[in-house]
């Protein structure tokens, strides 16, 4: 059965690694729903958060292939209830429709913010789950959406041993003494 999984991988910060990771998915014809790369609490370590809809069996195989990369420290996979996850969405809508229709109630309901107001448009920011982003999109659609963008999911796992604890045990590189 296919479900939404989040793969979180930690890696060294090296050129090309993003490519190496994404080709693991493309090669298996798996569509990536969302992918974010960012720095972490540890200097020089990057974090990949990848959301895909797949069977658990396939997810495990993919996570192992990611972890196999020489520059990946580890990769883990989670169902939605095992992580806290959010994405940011920005919606740009025409000022007239914002004024005419009752925007205030929508903002309150979603806990969304207006982050910019200009002569012709307003920009609304919302943080939440994928469903929230999509629900708000539906509501705002009649307003006439000029631009819409979402950040992709970022997530924090609930159960894992913390990265910093794991890394403390490991020196970056060691050389053979001759």
């Amino acid at each position: 059965m296919k479900e939404t999984y989040t793969i979180i991988a930690f890696s060294e910060n090296h050129i090309g690694l993003l490519n190496r990771i994404t080709i693991i998915f493309t090669r298996r014809h798996i569509n990536i729903e969302s992918l974010t790369v960012s720095s972490t609490e540890m200097k020089g370590i990057h974090r990949f958060t990848i959301v895909v809809v797949e069977s658990e069996e396939q997810i495990i195989k993919v996570a192992k292939q990611i972890e196999k990369l020489t520059e990946v420290l580890f990769a883990d996979w989670y169902l939605n209830d095992q992580i806290v996850y959010r994405e940011i969405a920005l919606y740009k809508i025409p000022i007239e429709s914002a004024i005419q229709k009752n925007l205030e109630q929508v903002l309150r309901e979603f806990n969304a913010h207006v982050v910019d107001v200009q002569k012709d448009f307003v920009i609304i920011e919302n943080t939440g789950h994928i469903d929230d982003t999509e629900k708000l999109y539906e509501i705002l659609e009649p307003y006439g959406i000029m631009q819409f963008v979402r950040s992709g999911m970022i997530s924090v796992s609930k159960n894992r041993k913390e990265l910093s604890a794991y890394l403390k045990e490991l020196p970056i590189n060691e050389y053979v003494k001759e």
Binding site: E71, L170, P171, I172, N173, E174, Y175, E178
Partner: peptide, 10 residues
């Protein structure tokens, strides 16, 4: 030149 003994991600 220093030969590698270990790399933390591997």
């Amino acid at each position: 030149y220093k030969r590698i003994k270990s790399i933390r991600s591997y």
